[in-house]
Design a protein around this nucleic acid. Structure first.
Lengths: 210, 210
DNA sequence: CTTGCGATTGACTCGCGAGTCAATCGAGTC
DNA sequence: GACTCGATTGACTCGCGAGTCAATCGCAAG
């Protein structure tokens, strides 16, 4: 392998450069040479470690997406949490992912998740898996009577995930203020919006007066 | 112009062909010649009517998006509707757009709206305008006390729009069943989910027992 | 020192596809 | 019939950028 201790892991170096370049220029509008330059590495070395430009994107996506799938699974396994608390943790996880690695998340969302026509197609099954895991959480809530029966768990999962992804998009493209504070507030607000609803209702958190 | 009565409007013919081809193959993975072939027209004629491949996409987007902006504006102007009813009509409009012109909506969502890195960037302002118009509806509801104060109207608008777009994505990529029935139900359900919330609450539609 | 071998280099190939353009068509006009 | 001019054609150009490859480097083992 390329794991000589002491030597920089060039493979990783190139992947990280790819994150930066893909995020800045977009996958379609950057050249492989841009990635090599960013990594401070010769053009050919990229092809020593990767078969193609696409493979880099695939690897970035799969690596990170699996982490998210595992995280959702673990959250769902916490039997002491209510469904709403679980969704709160899922939202928290995704938003934190963006907080800590905005470039990577931007690439995943913009180039893969929301581009199901090109690369997304390859990964539709993986993407669907995430929706399914969220749906599992919702389904439990429907069964225990917390959540409405007439909204299917698949439908609810899509709404929930869609809302979160739209928030990330908003931050990515400066349509929403992207500050630490906003991130933190958003975690709870998105759950309140989707679970509790936008409307004031006696049974949910009372609205702040004034 | 190209509006000789009796003669087919070739410009329109090419635009329609572009919708079909962009939807089927994706903007980046199709050739201009594919569009010409689909339109049954010589390659060069495409460049007689359009400056570039991009211009076709821009035109398709702007034309349709403006219709949606106008529609939202008109819905908001109906003073006899409650905010929730207005949102219901907005959801209905967008979903009907997909029902009637799935290819066009697919192109707009996949190639423009969700690709803010490439073409979206050009149109970010137009896209933002849609969020703003939805936010205006929400803001009115917040002011009259129907909607929660602690969720800003911009935030709520993003959640609402994000949920709808995710539903369309689900239909486009076969992650959700796409039948006439589902479309019809979705219109009300997405509003119920976002406004009323996923949770059962005394003040909203009671859950079906059994 | 030398041999072996993976890491590294970057000039080069080569196909693709956007955009050009000179030629042709054909409907209307006198 | 001859002329005009926009519509239409499709072969051609030309730059770009993904992927190749033969050469070189440099460490480690004998």
């Amino acid at each position: 392998m390329s794991g000589r201790s002491g030597a920089v892991d060039k493979r990783r170096l190139i992947l990280d450069a790819a994150i930066t370049v893909f995020a800045r220029q977009g996958f379609h509008h950057c050249r492989v040479s841009d990635v090599a330059d960013q990594a401070g590495v010769a053009y050919g070395l990229v092809y020593h470690y990767f078969d193609s430009k696409e493979q880099m994107l695939n690897e970035l996506f799969l690596e990170r997406w699996q982490i998210m799938l595992d995280a959702i699974g673990e959250i769902d396994a916490k039997t002491d949490l209510t469904p709403r608390q679980k969704l709160r943790e899922v939202a928290g996880f995704i938003i934190d992912s963006y907080r800590h690695e905005p470039d990577l998340m931007k690439v995943i969302i913009v180039e893969v998740t929301r581009a199901a026509n090109s690369f997304g197609r390859l990964h539709l099954e993986k993407i669907r898996e995430a929706y399914n895991r969220i749906a599992v959480i919702v389904e439990a809530a429907r069964r225990d009577g917390t959540f409405k029966q007439d909204i299917s768990s698949e439908f609810a999962a899509m709404c929930f995930y869609g809302a979160i992804e739209q928030l990330l998009s908003g931050w990515i493209f400066d349509l929403l203020p992207a500050t630490e504070d906003e991130f933190e507030r958003a975690k709870s607000l998105v759950v309140e919006a989707i679970c509790g609803g936008l409307e004031v209702s006696p049974s949910s958190t009372p609205a702040v007066s004034g």
